[in-house]
Design a protein around this nucleic acid. Sequence first.
DNA 1: GCCAACGTTGGC
DNA 2: GCCAACGTTGGC
Length: 135
Amino acid sequence: MTTQTYWLLKSEPETFSLNDLKKSSTTAWDGVRNYTARNNLNSMKKGDLAFFYHSGKEPSIVGIVKVIKESYPDKTDSTNKFVCVDVQFVEELKKPILLALLKTKKELADFILFKQGRLSVVPVTKQQWNFILKL
DNA sequence: GCCAACGTTGGC
DNA sequence: GCCAACGTTGGC
């Protein structure tokens, strides 16, 4: 595999937080009911890394997870149209990176997270990934 | 709690 | 196949 890609997965911490994932180590990332997000899930490859993002009262990137199983039918979807992937806890950031901070960075001007606020599975470029890691 | 953005649904 | 109406998400 030559092209490692990166992602950002959104979750409401009240529903499923990074801490929940930390406890269980792995989880099925199911419940996605949006076609754009589904397409992104389908593009994920085993071994891809993703930021774990908390939406809600303190929107921020809080950790990193890894894709351990590529897309397969989402059992929680009775229409059988949507898919999920399995992800594994990798690490928790020492300090969350707030959305407010990300927005101030000119290097991230093209971040799809800003442009499509409602998208829950967002692709991240290598450049963006590396830049954010340094913050 | 409000509102903007955007995705989805359904009527035609 | 288009478009208006509606619902949901998520930042502030």
